[in-house]
Design a protein around this nucleic acid. Structure first.
Lengths: 96, 96
DNA sequence: ATAAACTAGTTTATAATATAAACCTAATTT
DNA sequence: AAATTAGGTTTATATTATAAACTAGTTTAT
């Protein structure tokens, strides 16, 4: 219980935290929906989804809905673990 | 109550959040103590204290203890407000 | 008394991040 | 068929965080 426990840098980013938080609550969401909910720009979202995916925090599936491309995201168990751990850690900063 | 409310970028930094959180709990602390508690490097701490001070979130007093320089920090009411607001905002990301 | 090491920081340089702007491909509308 | 829209990705730039190097002075050892 101090002020020196590291906060997972992958989650300590407004947009990535919002994405993971959203995915935890809905379990699956597509690019456009996430973009709307987080009010992010498409470019930024694309980059941050990539990072979360590379880290294994989310799984990205690319497919089509009719003729339109559709990118679907789902949180992984690793992502859930990381989020829960992040929450515990930052809570210590919030109520000391 | 969504995933798009901005987190004060001044507080959404591990070290600055730790500093402000610490100062809220102790009311006054010197450079060396903050450095120990947060396990920060002196350079990083110096920069981040400066930013918090410039923003008016903390007040920095430079004096001497005997012959040694002593930098003392204290949170301001603006800093308290900002911290409380930050806590409320990030809580919405943490328990959606 | 002087060199070596230590304290308390600051400044500067570098690496990492976030963001926006520009771009791409295909589909739809006019 | 030209322009617009949808769904993204890539690239360039600005901001941030961090460490490394440096400054100024003090204490300790020689």
């Amino acid at each position: 219980m101090g002020f020196n426990q590291p906060l997972d840098p992958l989650l300590h980013s407004q947009l990535r935290l919002a994405v993971v938080s959203l995915l935890i609550s809905v379990e699956t969401a597509d690019f456009v929906y996430i973009k709307e909910q987080t009010a992010a720009t498409a470019g930024n979202l694309s980059v941050q989804l990539d990072k979360l995916s590379t880290a294994g925090y989310i799984a990205i599936t690319k497919g089509y809905e009719g003729k339109k491309p559709k990118t679907t995201c789902k949180i992984t168990s690793k992502g859930v673990d990381a989020f829960e751990s992040y929450v515990k850690t930052i809570q210590q900063y919030l109520k000391p």
